[in-house]
């Protein structure tokens, strides 16, 4: 297990180098010159050229890339062009809110999705099953910004149960977590249902029933544990979508998170912040993937990770 984790960590290096390269190239291709933006309107060509030299933007792309990578290796993500603060500090200031939001959303995804899926599977073709599946279909189809605005309208503006925007208390978390977690919950519900239905037809479930086990024990201990593998896969992937989704949801709910930081940085051509933000998000995603693989091992003794 230890060897496996170390090996996986080493394998992350090329993945992250690739991520840096892609982000770097995309930012190079985006029209607009950061030096022009920084210098402000009506700045002279000399000022712009000076800024460009300062930032190393006059050097060849490959050299810029090389500098960036070597800096990252030493933990230096550069300096924000806008605020002149280290990118690392900027990101760390915004990250907690995003991580809290992501965890709260994944909680909504897992709990809501799995409970709905289990009910659906154990009561196949019942009214409850049909209702859950229709709601799940809606859940996947609704765009998150629309869902977020609707929730704000009903629960914040009309009922005044939750704050309209901002971040800090658990009350701030509820609506954004539901907004961000719903689509995932819908997918997890469908996955849980089909995976459970697959498992409950197996003979070992009949065996468990023949032993005289209670129905709850059969469902949770025998069926669910075997049905978990595809569910874990989906939840792991959902986490990736979630990181992307925070961008929209943070904008809707005015949360000062990583997603908003990246969006603002893109608008300002604040190259180091964009690169750093995407890099950190990728690192988190890669680690979550590793966690998923380790969980596989835990839930399926047959998957030999080495």
């Amino acid at each position: 297990m230890f060897v496996y984790i170390v090996r996986r960590l080493l394998q992350m290096i090329p993945v992250l180098l690739g991520v840096i390269l892609v982000v770097f190239l995309i930012m190079q291709m985006v029209p607009g010159d950061p030096a022009v933006l920084l210098a402000g309107e009506g700045a002279s060509a000399e000022t712009i050229a000076k800024i460009r030299t300062q930032l190393g933007l006059d050097q060849p792309v490959m050299v810029q890339y090389f500098h960036y990578v070597t800096d990252v290796m030493t933990g230096d993500l550069g300096t924000s062009l806008r605020s002149n603060l280290p990118v690392f500090d900027e990101i760390m200031a915004r990250l907690p809110a995003t991580i809290e939001l992501a965890i709260a959303s994944i909680f909504v995804t897992v709990v809501l999705g799995m409970v709905a899926g289990i009910i659906s599977a154990t009561k196949q073709y019942s009214a409850a099953d049909i209702t859950i599946m229709i709601v799940a279909l809606l859940g996947v189809s609704l765009p998150s910004f629309w869902l977020g605005l609707s929730l704000i309208y009903y629960f914040s503006v009309k009922l005044q149960w939750f704050p309209v925007a901002g971040w800090g208390t658990w009350k701030h978390m509820v609506l954004p977590a539901i907004t961000l977690g719903t689509a995932g919950a819908a997918i997890v519900a469908r996955m849980t249902r089909s995976s459970m239905l697959d498992v409950v037809r197996q003979d070992y479930i009949r065996t468990a029933r023949a032993k005289g086990l209670r129905e709850q024990v059969i469902v949770y201990k025998h069926a669910l544990k075997n049905a978990l593998i595809p569910i874990i896969t989906v939840v792991g992937l959902q986490f990736g979508f979630l990181l992307g989704g925070t961008v929209l949801v943070e904008s809707v709910f005015a949360i000062n998170g990583l997603g908003r930081l990246i969006v603002d940085a893109i608008r300002m051509r604040d190259l180091p912040v964009v690169q750093g933000g995407v890099l950190i998000a990728s690192v988190i995603f890669v680690f979550v993937n590793l966690l998923v693989d380790v969980l596989y091992r835990y839930f399926n003794k047959r998957i030999d990770l080495n």
């Binding site: 197996q202 003979d203 070992y204 009949r206 065996t207 468990a208 023949a210 032993k211 005289g212 086990l213 209670r214 025998h222 544990k225 075997n226 839930f299 399926n300 003794k301 047959r302």
Partner: peptide
């Protein structure tokens, strides 16, 4: 459930009738 003690079953497929976990 308590009667099941007296009546047991062995299934056809030994690959499917034992919980892999």
């Amino acid at each position: 459930r308590s009667m099941r003690k007296d009546l047991q079953v062995i299934f056809q497929d030994p690959f499917a009738s034992l919980n892999p976990r």
